[in-house]
Simulated scan of single mutants.
Amino acid sequence: MASLVDVARAAGVSTSTASRALARPEMIGAAAVERVRAAAAALGYVPNPFARSLRAQESKTLGLVVPDSTNPFFAEVARGIEAACFRAGYTLILSNSDRSLEKERQQARVLVEKRVDGVLLFNHSDASAATISWLREQGMPVVLVERRLPAAPGGLVVPGAPGAPGAPDPEGAGRLCAVDCVLSDNAGGVRAALEHLAALGHRRVACLAGDPGAWHYAERTAAFRHVAAALAFDETSEQDGPLALVQPGLTTYADGQRAAAELLAGPRPPTALFCTTDTLAIGATRGAALVGRRVPDDVSVVGFGGTEITGYTTPPLTCVVQEKLAVGTQAVRLLLRRVADRRRPNAEAGTGDVTHVVPTRLLVRGSTGPAPTRSPHAATGKRASALD
């Protein structure tokens, strides 16, 4: 295997000149750079990344922690992140937390031990604050992806962000921790979806929501309540019993299937289901079928995410599209800026934290239609027991 000394000898330059020609070509003349590159190509020279990282105090590697690598949404965002890393000359290490706070902490520690230059994090929940604080104590730049994080009492707050002084505060959201974030416009996406349903004549709309202990789900659920009230949608009443129109704490396809089936087989079924993730919407579509409800004739379904699979369901899902490639690109760009800031002499750590919000859009497909004019119970006698 050829060494840098071999390349320098073949190009007729010193070893230090050959090194600069490959790593910092702007520092020497173009002719020398061309000779060194030609020699390196002819000899099949491959730079030693470990030696380079020790000299430069950087590994050219970023870490990404996701809650579930099998979830299409995280996979699609990760694709955008990896593409942006590749363009910038970085390698990406993907870690899976399995929605476990303890495993998330362990993965964060492994990434620090691997000497990554920065970490991109889909944090498990708001309880991930301790992990994020630990990473920052290690001097590790961190960017949250599709997440925000409430601050502890008296903690730092992102200026101008929802939850900051003088800004709108989603129900139960509180103050925001000062950590860089890149995320989709949750509130705007919810509004677009509900206004679409209202235009179709729906007034009894249920929300299948995620874990209220995670900021992004709390934000979407709060936006649902706010917009639903503004549009004069039905509210949960005593007649609904335990079947509240807002069903929180749902995660999986099975959760969406079960919640949809129970609501649609109840005494006062909704005419539309707004789901805070595509996963729940796909599950809800199957849940509707299991109790004999047709989508969209008997019930409309809206997802949130815009993952590729939503175009291949039956019918294809109407959904709020999160621009996943744009989110990934922006997150990498912001993290690399923080990595560069850390190398600057006298850089002020922990200041100027930003929240970058990427616009969402509504993609209307076949899962939404006009509100039914007759009771769906007239169409079938099937009940939620079909799931048993």
Rank of each mutant, 00 (worst) to 15 (best):
M1F: 08
V7N: 00
A10H: 07
V13E: 00
E26T: 11
I28M: 00
A31F: 03
F50T: 15
R52S: 15
A56Y: 14
S69R: 11
P72I: 02
C85K: 15
C85G: 13
Q107K: 08
V110T: 11
D117M: 05
T131M: 10
S133A: 09
W134S: 05
R136H: 04
E137I: 04
Q138C: 09
P141I: 02
L149M: 04
G155I: 01
G160M: 00
P162Q: 03
P165V: 05
P168E: 06
L183T: 08
R191S: 08
G201D: 01
G201C: 02
D211F: 10
H216S: 12
A218H: 12
R220A: 05
A228V: 10
L245C: 10
T252N: 10
Y253N: 13
Y253V: 14
A254T: 05
P267W: 06
A272P: 07
T276F: 11
D278F: 07
T279Q: 12
A284C: 03
G287E: 09
S300E: 01
V301S: 03
Q322K: 07
V332N: 00
V332H: 03
D341F: 11
R344L: 14
P345A: 15
V354C: 14
T355Y: 07
L363E: 13
H377A: 15
S385H: 15
